[in-house]
Structure formats: C-alpha cells, structure tokens
C-alpha cells in the first residue's frame, strides 16, 4: 500500500466530509443516542447511528464502510426530527451507504443493498419504476430456488393486486416510461460526472494536506 493511501486513511473523518452527503455534520454529534432510541429498526443495527459517528471520528474506516448498519435505515426521518443538534442523520446514513457501495465495501449479500441497487437500475431504464419487474427481480435476487419459494409465498398478494387493478402483467413486457429518456440519462450521466470530478479533487486536496 502506498504511503499516500496510508496517510489518507488516517483521516477518515475528512474523507467522509469530502465525499459523503452531509458528511460535514458528523463532527457535530454529541453522542446523546436519541437517534438510536428513535430508530424503528434500531435493534437490528450492528452499530447504531451515534456509534457510527464516533467510529468515523475514531478512524474506523473499514468497520464503518463494511457495516450492514446504514442499510437498515427505513428513511422514517425520526432521527432527523428528534436530533437536538439537528443533524441530517438520514441523509448521512444514505450517503455512507452510497459511498460504501461506490468503494465496493458494502456487504454484498445484504438484501437492502441489493434491492436499493436494483431500484436505481430499474428506474434508470425508462425513467419510471416498473413495479412488476422490480418485484420479480427482487424475489429472484437470491437465486432460482429461493425465488420460486418467495413467489409462491407472495402469490396471494400478487393475485390480490391483480384483481384490484393495482398490478399490470403487461408491465413485464415494457410498460410506463419517460418520453425523453435520452435527455434524462444524459443529465444523470453529467451529474454523476460532476460529482465524481469534485470527489476526486477533494481527495487530492486531502492527500496534499496530510
């Protein structure tokens, strides 16, 4: 490992500040734990939010980015509403999850990580979410055998949705979408490019400082 990378790793807080959505707020956490106590899936977090904040400040890069924790965020925004320091905790958790994924460090077999990635890919295809294709993909994301099991378990729900006209089998063949999907994709590619260029520059600045 090059010296530059080594040095860089000693500054995980700064890395988070430069690369993670709303990361500049991490240093403001006062460790009161209201976020963790307010989280609907709190008991399932490997490290609750305030612990994640402290781990970032303690340089635990690997432990934070490989953690399953942030992937249990249901986006209920309880933590944001209740945080006495008004940290945008939900955004930071989404940001950390995204950054971990981008760095290839997110846990590979975590259902929510898989689902979230498929959701994005699904909406990118036509500009609108195809619920049927997304649902089917989701059932089969852990292989054929489990997919069949899940499909059978969900059969009644599916029939109910079909009967009440809340699901359209024709969506499997294509379905709803944006007319200007080309423009939408070009705009999103550009946005990605801008974001990545900025992140690279921030990284450079970080390395030259340390």
């Amino acid at each position: 490992m090059s010296q530059a990378v080594e040095k860089y790793r000693n500054t995980f807080l700064r890395e988070v500040e430069a690369n993670v959505e709303e990361g500049q707020w991490v240093k403001m956490c006062m460790q009161c734990g209201v976020c963790s106590g307010s989280c609907p899936l709190g008991p399932h977090w490997e490290h609750p939010p305030q612990e994640i904040f402290m781990m970032i400040r303690a340089n635990k890069r690997e432990e934070v980015l490989t953690s399953s924790s942030m992937w249990f965020c249901t986006s209920c925004y309880n933590c944001i509403a209740r945080c006495p320091r008004e940290l945008p905790i939900t955004h930071i958790m989404h940001g950390l999850a995204h950054y971990a994924q981008r760095q290839g460090l997110a846990p590979k077999e975590l259902p929510t990580a898989k689902f979230a990635k498929r959701f994005w890919d699904n909406l990118l295809k036509k500009g609108r979410v195809n619920e049927l294709q997304l649902g089917l993909q989701l059932y089969f994301m852990n292989g054929l055998a489990e997919g069949i099991k899940t499909s059978l378990k969900m059969q009644k729900v599916g029939l109910g949705m079909l009967k009440t006209k809340r699901m359209d089998p024709m969506e499997a063949l294509g379905g709803h979408g944006c007319k200007d999907i080309k423009g939408l994709k070009a705009a999103l590619n550009k946005a990605k490019q801008i974001e990545e260029t900025k992140a690279a520059k921030a990284l450079e600045r970080l390395q030259s400082k340390s």
Binding site: G95, T112, F115, K117, W120
Partner: peptide
C-alpha cells in the same frame, strides 16, 4: 424515493 441511494449519488 428514499431507496435510490445505493446506485445514485447525491447530485444525480
């Protein structure tokens, strides 16, 4: 929605 973050960054 609130689940696109795995694939999509903040700006996108």
């Amino acid at each position: 929605a609130s689940i696109g973050y795995a694939g999509g960054g903040e700006l996108p």
